[in-house]
Amino acid sequence: MQRSAQASAVSKSAGEPEAASDPNRQRRRERLLQIGTLVLLLAVWEFAARDANKLLVAVPSDIAVATWELLLNGELLSATLDSMSTFVLGFVIASIIGIVVGFAMGTNRTVEVILDPYINALYAMPLVALIPILMLWVGIGFLAKITIIILFAVFPVIINTVTGVKNVDRHYLDIGKAFMASRFMVYRQIIAPYALPYVASGLRIALGRGIIAMIVAEFLTSISGLGGLIINYTNAFETAKAFAPVLVVALLANALTVLVQKVEERFGRWRRR
């Protein structure tokens, strides 16, 4: 008797749908709230700007139509590919340089002492100021854009990698020492995994700065890619069309951030959830 009561209590609590879906329902309510606010915002924008000068202000419906047009004629896609290929190459090079230099600085005091002041100074300064001079040296083409992206993206990677490498817990280094691991083993199996979360957050910062660099480079050097579209359509007072590439940049930046997070999670499986 007592036993069956117990069993039913267990099965009830295990299969109780109300309790289990509660956080889900909560999340759905919150999502709905966000979507509702967005719709409201767009509606207010649409109606408030209805009577404004079309040359200066675009309303959401016009932007949607313009985006559709640019998608159909392929302009948006080719600009996105143009921007992204440059960005990805620049970001990858910046990541590799950042990790290698950061590792060298973090493990070798001499290298750190020599490079540290420059890296901190360059990280802190508004690098945009360097762009005109840079254009004198590397022109306004592909090379200029890559250089600008690397310049913007590389320092957070270096700084975070150095921090991670230097912070390695002494207990873990002792394991390597006690079992006589080679220097390479210590780098690969102790220092690198320990520094990984630091590197990943450096990469996230670098991503944001790299995208800014890409757009700025497209504004200032050869007008091309998504930044070029923004400039050209703004200059032509086709404001609605200028919004389409802005939208794409926003989406890309967010998607890439999520991608970096996923990669980080994949490599951080060993951490306590």
Partner: peptide
């Protein structure tokens, strides 16, 4: 390698599995 050390705490590398932690010493 003639001495084997067992640490009081933080003696395992948390990003390696148990087998990999042992493999670490073998590789070393």
């Amino acid at each position: 390698h003639d001495r084997g050390f067992v640490f009081q705490q933080y003696g395992l590398l948390p990003w390696l599995t148990a087998a990999q932690n042992i493999g670490f010493a073998l590789e070393a």
